[in-house]
Computed example of a mutant assay.
Amino acid sequence: MFKVQLSTVTASIGLAAFATLLLSPPASADTITIPTSSFDSTSSLEQYWNYNYPWGDTHNGAARMSSDHVSASGGVLTLTAVPASDSDSDIHYHSGTIYAKEQVNVDGTDAVGYQVEGEFIAPTTKGTWPAFWLNAASGWPPESDIAEWKGERTDQIWFNTFNTSSQVASKVVTWPDDGNYHAVKGVLRTIPGNSADLSIEYYLDGTLQATHTAAGYVGKALNLIIDLQMEGSSGSPGPTGTTTFKIRNVQMTKLTS
């Protein structure tokens, strides 16, 4: 059977062309760099994620992060914030944050884009500040907030793109705060004829909410962060009890076409 097929192929395209076909590498394909299974267990979590922020255990809010407030089981990541009992006047909560070991870097050659997505049950009360975001691995900006919830204005979600500290594109829409999981997605892609900037599309439950131009983002490495920060930009005082942020089906895909 193989000899018949081989003869047929070589007769139609020529022996030299057939040899080239055999030796050519397969066409590139999109690559899942973080699978949805990364929250199946603690060991799965630690295979793909680090604890805290890339720079430490605090950031622009009133919570100090530790692995004690991070759990992963059955495909669900849970970040938990509890009021602090210590005497540090700047820290009012102990909470949890993780960041991906795989960075996002749209260089225009190996990767022409990235798709980052997940499903969330996010707290939106005053003083709660959960987020799913990309932050510059070196310097700042760039920053892309694929989802940011700030309890100063409840039942809303922010999609933000920081080009500079003062040049920020934002879209604020209603968050369906019904206690169910809802899907958020950010798609970063190169722009034809533009070697410096990216396009970022922001989605909520499969519906496009905003498209921003991310100036100078090509070739800039970004860390994917999931955190439950407290107070800060979300107002104060925050909750007096335990706050939880639940996340599932997070996936990062490197786009090559």
Rank of each mutant, 00 (worst) to 15 (best):
I200H: 03
D30Y: 08
Q47R: 14
H182F: 15
L22T: 11
P35F: 14
I247W: 03
E143I: 02
G113F: 00
D107P: 05
Y93K: 10
S195C: 05
K254W: 11
M230W: 10
I34R: 01
D86H: 09
A214N: 04
A111K: 05
D155E: 06
F18Q: 10
K171W: 00
G61N: 15
G75R: 11
T207W: 10
L79N: 00
T154R: 12
S87Q: 12
N163P: 00
D177K: 03
Q5D: 14
L21I: 03
S28C: 07
E201C: 02
L22H: 09
A137T: 07
T243Q: 06
V172C: 02
E148T: 02
I247E: 09
V112P: 00
D90W: 08
D30I: 12
T164L: 00
E143W: 00
G108T: 14
D227M: 15
P142N: 10
L134F: 02
A100H: 03
P26T: 12
G219D: 13
F18K: 08
D86R: 12
N160T: 04
P192Q: 09
S236P: 03
Q103A: 11
P123K: 06
A19F: 05
Y217F: 15
W55Q: 10
T125V: 11
E117C: 04
N160A: 01
I98T: 05
F2C: 10
D90M: 08
I247P: 01
I157S: 04
I247T: 13
N52V: 13
Q47N: 13
A29G: 06
N223H: 15
A147L: 15
Q229K: 07
Q229D: 13
Y51L: 08
L45A: 11
A100S: 14
Q209L: 03
T253L: 12
V172F: 02
Y203E: 15
M1C: 09
V184W: 02
H92L: 11
N105E: 14
K254L: 10
H94I: 09
S165C: 06
V116D: 07
T164P: 01
T154M: 09
T124Q: 14
T243V: 15
T240E: 10
E46M: 12
Y181V: 04
